[in-house]
């Protein structure tokens, strides 16, 4: 471990054994994904007659087309897209504004406010589904985009404020003070200095939030009752309920639901890790 590269050259048996076991476990980890993809590409007859890991002999693309129509995917896909595209940037903006105010402006009770916000990062919203329904219902917002976006915003704020606050706090206060003396307002300083310097953090949070908004199920289940307002996870759940024995189509539906988040992950991989760890591990 003094010089790992050297060790590998000398073929350290421990490292080789380690590598083999890590690779084997990784194969096991991939099996569900491979199995699902293969099934999605097989015809019904082939699913029943061939082994689980046999490569599809003739690719049955029609599974995707049929599942798309049966599952009302064009509608659920559209709803998920609208909700995600509004919620994610808007949530990040209001979180960044709040984090800036808490980190750079003396309000007298910054610390208490910060604790109040952080508290929410730990709360399970699964506990509050019924009162949440009740609240959104009393505002007449059940089955509307705002009715689900507002709670999503609320439960996204704590974690994002937490991360951005620790980032903004590291910027020297003198910088802000100098700009204030030059006559800038806090709004200008936030927009012209803090937003640009925090772009890498914002990008990381954006991608994390995209995935979690895209995947959210429990709140949508309660707040979106009308089939035409459903998001992808709700659509998938109902598809499973109705067509659970059309294995090829069901697996095609799973692939279509999972694909956008997977692509985002594969493209922006490094941001995930930095977004997750910048907050959690620094303490």
């Amino acid at each position: 471990m003094i010089a790992p590269a050297l060790n590998m050259k000398r073929r350290d048996p421990v490292l080789i054994g380690l590598w083999i076991s890590l690779a084997l476990v990784a194969l096991v980890w991939l099996t569900p994904v491979v199995f699902i993809t293969f099934t999605a590409l097989k015809s019904e007859a082939e699913i029943f007659s061939t082994a689980a890991f046999s490569v599809p002999s003739a690719i049955e693309w029609s599974n995707f087309g049929v599942a798309w129509i049966k599952g009302n995917f064009s509608q659920t896909f559209f709803n998920s897209t609208v909700i995600t595209l509004v919620k994610v940037p808007l949530g990040l903006l209001i979180s960044a504004m709040a984090a800036y105010a808490l980190a750079q402006i003396k309000l007298g009770w910054n610390k208490a406010l910060l604790l109040f916000v952080l508290f929410g990062a730990m709360l399970p919203f699964q506990v509050m589904l019924a009162p949440l329904f009740n609240l959104v219902n009393s505002l007449d917002l059940i089955d509307t985009y705002p009715g689900v976006i507002l709670p999503y915003l609320a439960f996204g704020v704590p974690y994002q404020v937490f991360i951005l606050h620790s980032f903004f706090r590291a910027v020297p206060k003198e910088l802000t003070e100098a700009a204030l003396i030059d006559g800038a307002t806090h709004f200008t300083i936030f927009r012209r200095i803090f937003l640009p310097v925090s772009l890498p953090v914002l990008a990381a949070l954006l991608i994390l939030d995209f995935v979690s908004t895209w995947n959210e199920f429990a709140m949508a289940l309660v707040l979106l009752q009308d089939k035409n307002m459903w998001t992808l996870p709700l659509g998938l759940m109902s598809f499973q309920g109705q067509f659970s024995s059309n294995y090829g189509e069901l697996n095609a539906a799973i692939v279509m639901t999972v694909l956008p988040a997977t692509l985002v992950y594969l493209i922006f991989q490094r941001y995930f890790v930095s977004g997750l760890t910048s907050g959690a591990v620094k303490g």
């Binding site: 504004m97 105010a101 808490l102 402006i105 406010l113 709360l123 509050m128 609240l135």
Partner: peptide, 25 residues
């Protein structure tokens, strides 16, 4: 005032849609 204006949107939506349901439960 500027600080309060910057804080209000996030805190408002958080208090209303995350904290209030907890009290209501």
């Amino acid at each position: 005032t500027q600080g309060i204006l910057l804080l209000t949107p996030a805190l408002g939506v958080y208090a209303m849609f995350a904290i209030w349901p907890m009290i209501d439960v």
